[in-house]
Simulated assay, not measured.
Amino acid sequence: MAQVSGNIDTRRGILDTAHGIVGAKGFSGVGLNEILVAAGVPKGSFYHYFGSKEAFGEALLADYFEAYLADIDATLAEPGLSHAERLMNYWRKWQATQGSIDYQRKCLAVKLAAEVSDLSEPMRLALKRGTAGIIDRVTGAIQAGIAEGSLKVEAEPRATAETLYHLWLGASLMAKIERTDVPFEAAMTTTRRILEPRPV
């Protein structure tokens, strides 16, 4: 049980604890009491930070995407690599985390998109903002790779980024269904064909 104290620490502790539990069981399948017991937080404290379970879900997604986008920024700025190499590393990291049994590392966009999009408009919008941020960053990486000469794409960079994100989102869902890495391997092959990465 993770004991937390102080206003910031309490809110942070609730969110950190919830990432693993919701990643494993989904949003609807988890009661607030399970999260609060695991976090060592009384129920009254929860409503001090979150007005409802839906507001909590929105905050959880916003928190997840903040960390996720920071991680993408670090991957796409890794020194000593071409933009193509950085972008391919991003897809490799996607496969490594989505293929992992570590629920803390699972993508909440993959886990919750189908579940909450029809149930909660605020959570749907949080997912939309987060995924748009991912696509924005992939778009920028593609544009930089084209300018550098390490990537060659046929479609516009934004359309290419959207296609790739949809491809990997679908591969993540199929990998869950099939319980193999085959969908990821197919996605990687298609990604290489679309981006045509090359040395510079």
Rank of each mutant, 00 (worst) to 15 (best):
R124S: 04
D71V: 06
A155F: 08
G6L: 08
E185G: 04
A39V: 00
I21Q: 04
S100I: 09
A186V: 14
V4K: 10
L195C: 05
L127E: 01
F65R: 03
T75W: 05
L127F: 03
A144R: 12
Q98K: 04
M88D: 01
F56N: 09
L32Q: 09
M174P: 00
H19S: 14
T75I: 15
T160V: 13
W91M: 03
A109F: 09
F50S: 04
A126S: 11
S52I: 12
I35D: 02
V37H: 12
Y47E: 05
L164N: 02
L127Y: 03
A161Y: 02
G44P: 03
T191S: 14
V182G: 06
R11S: 07
R158L: 12
Y47V: 03
L112N: 03
E54Q: 13
N33E: 11
A74D: 12
P183G: 11
L69Q: 11
V116I: 14
H83D: 00
V116N: 04
C107I: 07
G145D: 02
A147C: 03
W94K: 06
T131F: 00
L119Y: 06
G130S: 01
C107E: 08
G31Y: 11
F27H: 04
D118H: 10
E162C: 06
L36Y: 12
L164T: 06
S172G: 10
Q98D: 08
H48L: 14
G80L: 15
D102K: 11
D136V: 00
A113W: 09
E85D: 10
R92N: 14
V110Q: 00
D73Q: 15
M1W: 06
S5H: 13
V200L: 11
E58I: 06
M174C: 02
A113I: 01
V200E: 07
V4I: 08
A126C: 09
Y47P: 01
L195S: 01
Y103W: 14
A67Y: 02
L112D: 00
V30I: 08
Y68G: 02
